[in-house]
Design a binder for these strands. Structure first.
Lengths: 190, 190, 190, 190
DNA sequence: TATGAATGAGGCTTCATTCAT
DNA sequence: CATGAATGAAGCCTCATTCAT
């Protein structure tokens, strides 16, 4: 399938990179691994992306998520759904944010994570907080979501690993409401 | 006295390994880095530990923590103190659990993390839960602690990065109490 | 008009090649460097010249010089002017012969240098020699000119690097006259 | 012959490096070439020298020459003997200075050449000059010696390639005397 | 025809590890 | 026993060149 198609090859490399970087982390992933997965020559990585690092940057750049669509009181529930219940097969089964922690020895990866956490989670939650300490509360709730993602995806603690959305709903409701200072729903309406 | 030296060298290697593995992750750490930090020849790593991997295992084995000393209602506050406020300089400034996530591409590291999370956190919390779903509640609370550790240590979100124990106390109190189903203190007594 | 473009592109490639090969030497110059300088696709080098090597050969082929125009007794002065004082910007600032020494690991370059030295310098000087040993004397004088080019252009020894034609004139006169066995002028008439 | 002897291996690498760098130039020489010539693993180059560049520096560092021993009036003759008639087999048959011109695209190599030319040749000759323009005269004479080395070694012009010391003696005498402004001998006494 | 995607060899360098001494 | 010389695989990346389109 040596399609002589720039965009297709680029896309396959990106796809393979996302998966490898997520699963193994930046250091344990070799450009040859990625190229082999994508079925193309490793040289093309340098042709199209310039360096392993820039490939990583681009692979980490877009995390597809549209959490803002839907009722405000279900935002946390949607976030949890994204972190925990959505199928992130493209990223090795874990939410990309969680997977990217594996590369967090590199300042660039850290920055990317910070950016994503702050824009997609903290800021969105901050707007919902009633009362003072909005930033801290939003971060504490974000931390919980990230923590749940990790315990379920990386650590695989038994109860969380098998939990269904409905099992978590009541706790989401109470913790989110407590931290944000306003009633939140624990599960999105269908 | 040769035994003494041997033990001392082993200990120095372990110490250096802990720091490097924590800061850079398993893959980005080379045995020469560790040996140089310890001031000894790299070959000794193989003499004493057999391989880089077994050195990692041993370095990750003991995380010194004695969370069970103290009143029950302050357990969560102590845990948070350990994860967030204690000085883990030996592990590069982050709680070893958090640091070890950097190596979580390796199943061994994952297992070690799981072990530590389950024994030290989940199980201890589980015993305190009033009501059903003890395991899940304990894991959800553990997840929060881990998440806070990450957002503060790795991601460095602004509010958490600067928070003092007293700032977090009220939230710890309300969330821990809600999840465990019993009143918990947000800050340890001096 | 396609022929025009083809010729223009060929010429641009040759020009870029001359400069790069002179400045960096054959090995340190990549065909992509040349193509980029010429503003064309690297493939055209292979289309037009067959290989990097053949491009080099062609680029090295013509060194524009017309030393024979002018009075005989000023020949050495003209030669020195060409080697030392002429502006060889097209060749990176050094006389092409001097620049080509950088590629003298390759027998082809050596042959080209030999050819040029013998035809343009040695033979022309040989015809002027009065007395025996004509060839050796001509070569010794050629060697001096080449050496001056190198010390000024490549090595940049302080006095030669700043010398003006008039500074060198008396020495040129005496050395050239001594080696050729006949009076030579040290500086060309305007 | 895998002598497990640091100094011996280092020396063999240096020796092989000298020859390769001289013959092929810096860019055309690969560390694997050198290692193969030396009969050792290429890794040892990095163990002992740190990088290809530092190996080059060290290989270029010492050019064994003791031109100052002997009568002053024979200095130029000794220099010519060194440049032209001595057996530089270790450097591929050419005087190291001449060979190093092959790497003169690299500023470091240039600097090294300048250093050697200035200290070993120009400065020594400068001290002998009677009259003004000492520096320029010394450089002009050095240029001649370098040029002769090139025409004989690299370009291989016919007369010079076959010349014996005695053939050159009269010309050395007259040119050196003219440039230095004092009587010089054209050939060293046995 | 000419653009540029693709290739395979090889560049320097660092890795974990072994084996003499 | 311990030092460190040696190794071979693999790391990222660039090269000259070919071959579809």
């Amino acid at each position: 399938m040596p399609t002589r198609d720039r965009e297709a090859t680029r896309a396959r490399l990106l796809e393979a990179a996302r998966l490898r970087f997520a699963r193994e982390g930046y250091d344990a992933t070799s450009v040859r691994d990625i190229a082999r997965d994508a079925g193309v020559d490793a040289t093309l990585i340098f042709r199209y992306f310039g360096s392993k690092k820039r490939l990583f940057d681009e692979a980490a750049a877009d995390i597809p998520d549209n959490l803002l669509d839907g009722p405000e009181e279900e935002l946390v529930a949607r976030m949890l759904g994204s972190v925990v219940f959505r199928d992130w097969a493209r990223y090795g089964g874990e939410h990309p944010l969680v997977a990217m922690l594996r590369s967090s020895a590199h300042e660039d990866a850290r920055r990317r994570i910070r950016e994503e956490v702050c824009t997609t989670y903290v800021r969105a939650l901050e707007d919902l907080v009633e009362g003072e300490d909005a930033a801290l509360r939003a971060e504490l709730l974000s931390a919980w979501l990230v923590g749940i993602g990790i315990l379920r995806g990386v650590v695989a603690t038994p109860a969380l690993a098998e939990a269904e959305p409905a099992d978590l709903a009541p706790y989401v409701e109470s913790v989110a409401s407590a931290l944000l200072g306003r009633p939140m729903s624990g599960i999105p309406q269908p």
